[in-house]
Design a protein around this nucleic acid. Structure first.
Lengths: 313, 313
DNA sequence: ATATTTTTATAGCCTAAATTGATTAACATG
DNA sequence: CATGTTAATCAATTTAGGCTATAAAAATAT
C-alpha cells in the first residue's frame, strides 16, 4: 500500500470516474486502473463496485476512503512540519468566503495579506456555507471565512469579529425615523431576504423567529445580492437587514435609511474556519492576525447578541 | 514520500542505528540509507543528526517521527477495516500484562481465548506499567492488562474488574485475628512491599498514605514476587497486602492468615488498555468479553474504593 | 437491432525507483 | 596504530510505476 494508491482511490471516489480522476492526478487512466486493482488485490477486497454506472464505492470502500483521506492529509502535515520549522510560509492556500462577507471584507485585508506573505499563492472562492463545509472536509479548501457557530465536529472555528445587523428602513416604512430599533419590532413578513442558501438569510430568519413564531416559510421577495436588496427596499417593497460592514461605503442619501438596533445589537459571528487536522496552520493564524488587526477600529460595538447562522428545524 | 520511507525512519529512530534498523525491516543497510536520504532530500531537511554517535534525531526529526508513527499506524488500520468487514479475527496480537496480574489472571482466560480465536497468534509479555505505556505508544504492544486509571492521554482504558486488596497477617502480628480491617489500622512501617516498579506497590503506598502522612521512602523489606512476600510475612517480618485473585489458590493453612477489609474494601481497578487509535479493536473487545465473562463470579465484592496505581509526588 | 460513443481493463514496453552486494570512508575503541 | 563498527557510495539487478495502444464492456444514439 502506498500513499499514491490511496490518493488515487480518493480521486476515483470523488469523480466516480476513472478517466476524470486520472486527469486530476495527472496520470493516464490505465495507471489508475492498475494501481487501484493492485491495492484491491493486496487488501483482497473490492473498493469500487464497477458494475454500477457511474462507479460506486462498496461498503468497505466507503470506510477505506475515510481512512485514506486521513492518511493522505496526515502525510501532507509532514511537509507542514518542515515548513514550520524553517519559518517558511508559502505554497498554495485555498480560502473560501461566504457571499455576504466577500465584497466588504476581502478588499480590507487582501492587499495587506499579499504584502505580508508574497510566497503564498492565494486562491479565493466565493462559496456558500454548505459548500465550504463540504470542501473543507474533502480537503479542497484550506480554510474559509464564514458565519459561525456551525457545530460541525470536523471543523474548528476562530472568531474574527462580531458584525452587527443594521436595519435598512426606507422612507414611508412604519419604522422609518426610529432609532434604537428593538428586535421585537421586526416582522418577518415585511422583511426582504436573500435567496435560500445564504447563511445571512438564516440569521435574519432566526432573529425574527426569536420573537414571533413564524412557520410559514414562503417569503415573497428574495434576492441574490445585498445590493439588490437595498434597491428593492428603496422601491418601497419592505425593510431589510444589512451586515454592518456593508453600511460603511454606502451613498450618503442611503445612509439616511440606516437604523441601528438598541444594544445588545444582534450580530453575526464571523470566523475563520478550518479542518480540525490543522493543516497550514501558520498561514491560517497569520491570516487571522491580519484580519483581526484590520477590523479592529472598523467595528467597535460593545455589546452584541450572537445570532446563529444555521437553520434549525 | 512513501509509507515505507516513514517506516524506515521509525525503525532508525527506534534503534538509533541504521544496520540494526535494516535487519528489523528485513532489508539491507544501504536501502535504509538511500531511502532516508531520499526523504530528507524531498523534504529538504535533515531528519537524523549523523554526527552524533549513536545517531540522533534532529528537532524536526522528532516531530516528523511522531507524525510518521501516526501515518504508519493509520495505514495499518486500512487492513483492520478490511478484516473487520470480513469478520476475520486473526494475525499477531501482542499483549502486555503487569506482573501482579499475570500469574492469576492469565491461566483463567488464556485457554478460553485461544479456543475462541484460534487464528490469533497471541504474544504475551510480562511488563511493568511503565514499560507497557512506552510500548503501547510506540506500537510494540496492541493492548495490555494493567491497573488503572493511568491518566495517559494517548491510551484508552476499559475496566475489566475491581480486585480488592486482602490483608495477609501472620500469627503474632498485632492485627492477627481481627476481621473487617479498617484502612486506618494500616502502618506502612510494618508492611512488606514489592520492589520498585510494581504498580501494586504504589497502590499499597497510596493506600497507607491516605491515612498517615509518611514521607520516609525507605522501606526495608522488599520483594520481587508476591509469593516471596507471603513467605517473608510467614517469617514474622510484617504483614502484607495481596490482590484478591492471589488469595484464591492459597494453601489452607495460609488462608487462615487472610483478613478482609471492611467495606468499602480498597481495591485496584484492572483494565484492558490500548492506544487511542483503536487498532485491532475487534480482538481487544473480544478479549475484554472473555475476561469479563470468566471473572464474573470469581469476584463478587459489592462496595470497593479504588486506589490509584500511580505514584503521586 | 446496429452503430457510435464512452469508459474501463489488458498487454507490452520503457523508464525510474528500490534494493542489493561489494566497497569505501569515517569514527570510535582497545 | 590497528581493529571493529557503522554509515555512505557505487554499480548492477530487480521491481514497480507509468505510458501507448488496444480490446472489451457498457451506455447511448441511430
Amino acid at each position: 500500500m502506498t500513499i499514491t494508491q490511496l490518493y488515487y482511490v480518493l480521486a476515483v471516489a470523488e469523480n466516480q470516474n476513472f478517466t476524470k480522476a486520472a486527469e486530476k492526478c495527472f496520470v493516464t487512466q490505465p495507471t489508475l486502473s492498475m494501481q487501484i486493482q493492485k491495492l484491491e488485490d493486496e487488501l483482497d477486497v473490492q473498493i469500487f463496485d464497477r458494475s454500477k454506472k457511474p462507479i460506486e464505492l462498496t461498503d468497505v470502500g466507503k470506510k477505506i476512503v475515510i481512512q485514506a483521506r486521513n492518511i493522505v492529509n496526515e502525510s501532507y502535515r509532514i511537509q507542514d512540519i518542515v515548513d514550520q520549522q524553517k519559518g517558511f510560509i508559502g505554497g498554495e492556500f485555498k480560502l473560501g468566503i461566504i457571499p455576504t462577507v466577500m465584497p466588504t471584507l476581502l478588499p480590507m485585508f487582501l492587499k495587506a495579506f499579499i504584502k505580508k506573505h508574497p510566497k503564498v499563492k492565494l486562491k479565493i472562492e466565493e462559496l456558500t456555507t454548505e459548500e465550504i463545509i463540504t470542501r473543507i472536509n474533502d480537503g479542497h479548501l484550506d480554510a474559509a471565512i464564514a458565519a459561525t457557530p456551525l457545530e460541525v465536529d470536523t471543523i474548528k472555528e476562530r472568531a474574527l469579529f462580531y458584525e452587527p445587523f443594521v436595519c435598512y428602513i426606507p422612507q414611508g416604512h412604519r419604522l422609518h425615523g426610529k432609532n434604537n430599533i428593538d428586535i421585537a419590532h421586526l416582522d418577518i413578513d415585511d422583511m426582504l431576504l436573500l435567496e435560500d442558501g445564504h447563511c445571512f438569510r438564516e440569521g435574519v430568519i432566526n432573529l425574527c423567529k426569536a420573537f414571533k413564531d413564524h412557520t410559514d416559510d414562503e417569503f415573497q421577495l428574495e434576492s441574490g445580492s445585498i445590493e439588490t436588496l437595498i434597491k428593492l427596499s428603496n422601491e418601497g417593497l419592505g425593510m431589510t437587514l444589512l451586515p454592518y460592514l456593508h453600511t460603511l461605503d454606502m451613498r450618503e442619501n442611503e445612509k439616511k435609511n440606516l437604523h441601528y438596533f438598541k444594544e445588545p445589537s444582534p450580530a453575526r459571528e464571523v470566523s475563520i474556519i478550518f479542518h480540525k487536522s490543522e493543516l497550514k496552520m501558520q498561514i491560517i493564524e497569520s491570516l487571522q492576525d491580519v484580519i483581526a488587526g484590520i477590523i479592529r477600529g472598523a467595528i467597535a460595538f460593545q455589546d452584541v447578541k450572537i445570532i446563529s447562522p444555521i437553520h434549525k428545524k
